[in-house]
Design a protein around this nucleic acid. Structure first.
Lengths: 174, 174
DNA sequence: TTGCCACTAGAATGATCGTTCTAGCCGGTG
DNA sequence: CACCGGCTAGAACGATCATTCTAGTGGCAA
């Protein structure tokens, strides 16, 4: 799915997943669209759990924020800038062409935002401000994936991490 | 190009551009890759000029920043969330599959970042900080395009604009 | 006028796409 | 044993992809 929706051929998927095409259509009668929707939901949920695990392991939300961006930067480097956000590429591809999948991506981003909002709230940020901060957090992370992948340079992600950490710090202190 | 690289068929391009396929290959012997590269450069340059025009019309970089995000939000609404960043979709699509086009997208983002950096420097931000601020500016804008398009909700872009404006304000004041 | 070259025009080609279809395997139940 | 449904397996199909090729047009230069 890292190759995007249109870049992922069903034949190729059946090969790497060791599943014949007939099985794909047996489990996903809706065809490629349904398969993509389920894949998006699954990887969206997995990524959310990953981020929550990072925050769980951190002593506070400032450290958690720093660790998230640092982990993202290291993952990019380790995978030669292939392993990034599993949703963004598809989200942009389908935003104006497939309403079903667009809604799926919107729900995932909303779920992520809510998750981050409750994290920040629990960390001492006032509720109204926490939602804003969560949105900025997500947008910055996504922008970082885009710019880092294009330039094959993870220092961009680290730089954005520093900026985001400062924002969280000020939000906690006031 | 708003449909992405893989989503844009050459046959469809020849129809809407009123140019036969033979002409496309006459002017772009490199085929679809070369055509995409030139289109990316052209629209990347046009978008940069658009942003610079917004900053030119604004009294200072704080207002310019606010106007940029506001204009982006309005453009999204007016186009039913189709008219956004002309580079991002393709950049994510080709980042791990087409090195030639990846480099083109990287150069465009670099050019945008340099443009914003000199803007912020001219506006009173110290040079080292200006580059950081420009990167955050671009990442936030790109993240905003992604989230706003997925949710079909431009208030996300406006919210990010407010956050970015605050960041520019503090950068100017210190 | 004649010749040439840039360019137009779209049919032909082979590969690949998503989807459907046919056939058969395999394990549990009657 | 016979049977049946869940699942496997991939060939077949029509559409569409990027690319190449063949013809022909139109204007400029000699």
């Amino acid at each position: 799915m890292q190759q995007g929706y249109l870049g992922s051929g069903l034949k190729h998927i059946s090969q790497i997943s060791q599943a014949p095409i007939g099985s794909l259509y047996h489990f996903f009668p809706g065809g490629k669209t349904e398969l993509a929707a389920e894949t998006l939901k699954a990887s969206g949920g997995a990524y959310q759990e990953l981020v929550e695990a990072v925050f769980d392991a951190a002593p506070d939300i400032v450290s958690g924020t720093r660790d998230c961006f640092q982990a993202a930067a290291e993952t990019l480097r380790r995978s030669d800038y292939a392993d990034a956000c599993p949703i963004a590429t598809v989200a942009l591809e389908v935003a104006s062409s497939d309403e079903t999948l667009r809604e799926v991506t919107a729900e995932i981003f909303e779920s992520w935002t809510e998750s981050a909002t409750s994290r920040f709230t629990a960390g001492g940020v006032e509720p109204a401000r926490a939602r804003e901060l969560a949105t900025v957090f997500l947008a910055t992370l996504e922008g970082g994936f885009l710019l880092s992948r294009a330039a094959k340079d993870a220092t961009t992600m680290e730089l954005l991490g520093h900026s985001m950490v400062e924002l969280v710090e000020t939000a906690v202190r006031r």
